[in-house]
């Protein structure tokens, strides 16, 4: 009740401050003294465990728009974008070209620190649609992921081709997935975002990022860490492979010798 009153007062204040009847102006950033919207988020888990039968997972992120302007809210002027960014690593895109009738890798571009996975859920398309402006989102959305080449000499059109190819290959592999419409308001200010994690999600620390937009303008964002961890045997194997690589390699060979010998013994009897 109190909030509604406040919001009404804010709106009245805005209208008073700008007597022009143009509604668009009321949608511009809030004037001095008005209450600024905030975003609060929470998750159903802070850790995803990769078990031996892991085949992807669903992540639910809940949030609320605090101090939402009811009038703006009722006409759908608030938008939420929730992303899950995987750990970052270098990524090299190579392009084959035909030289004397033979296809060979001609050019390559290596991008620094590109997220290995990227899942996006939003109330609507980031890029906008006819009649709907794009969300003015710094670094949000697959098209806006920071792809900086390690080698700046290879610029221009060629670089853009490689960036497009990178995004396309990542989307084809299922590691980058946009879901415009994955966020829905469950009350006037409470929302739920569902993110589908692919089966080949990399392990490590991921970042959940929720961004609030008002009339297409970025207001604020909140981040939460999400750990994707291997469990039990999977973790033990990974640790062994990285901490005792030589022993691990020899153990693999030993296992192979044992299996091969076992089979020949087994088949000798029948």
């Amino acid at each position: 009740m109190k909030r509604a009153l406040l919001a009404t007062l804010t709106l009245l204040g805005l209208v008073a401050a700008s007597p022009a009847p143009a509604f668009a102006q009321a949608l511009s950033p809030p004037a001095q003294g008005s209450v600024v919207e905030r975003l609060e988020i929470g998750m159903n888990t802070s850790q995803i465990a990769i078990t031996p039968d892991f085949a992807g997972a669903d992540l639910a992120i809940f949030g609320a728009v605090v101090n939402a302007d009811e009038l703006l809210n009722s006409i759908g002027q608030y938008d939420i974008v929730v992303t899950l960014e995987g750990p970052k690593d270098f990524a090299t895109v190579r392009r084959k070209e035909r030289v004397f009738g033979i296809w060979i890798n001609r050019h390559s571009v290596t991008f620094k620190e590109a997220p290995m996975s990227y899942t996006l859920s939003s109330t609507r398309k980031i890029e906008g649609e006819p009649g709907v402006p794009p969300l003015d989102a710094p670094g949000i959305g697959i098209q806006h992921i920071d792809l900086t080449p390690t080698d700046f000499l290879r610029g221009g059109r060629l670089l853009e081709d490689f960036r497009d190819a990178y995004r396309r290959l990542k989307m084809e592999s299922g590691l980058y997935q946009p879901d415009p419409g994955g966020v829905r308001f469950i009350s006037s200010t409470l929302f739920q975002a569902n993110l589908k994690l692919p089966a080949n999600i990399p392990s490590g620390t991921h970042t959940v990022r929720a961004a609030l937009f008002k009339s297409g303008k970025f207001i604020m964002e909140k981040t939460l860490p999400l750990r994707v961890v291997k469990t039990g045997l999977e973790q033990a194997i990974t640790d062994a492979a990285h901490q005792q690589p030589l022993l691990y390699g020899m153990a693999s060979v030993f296992l192979a010798l044992l299996t091969g010998w076992g089979a020949s013994v087994l088949f000798r009897r029948d």
Partner: peptide, 18 residues
């Protein structure tokens, strides 16, 4: 592999600096 036009001329490798 050398002669046929590949389905995708681009390929992706993760990790390391190549």
């Amino acid at each position: 592999q050398l002669v046929i036009t590949p389905a995708d001329v681009y390929s992706l490798a993760i990790g390391g600096v190549h």
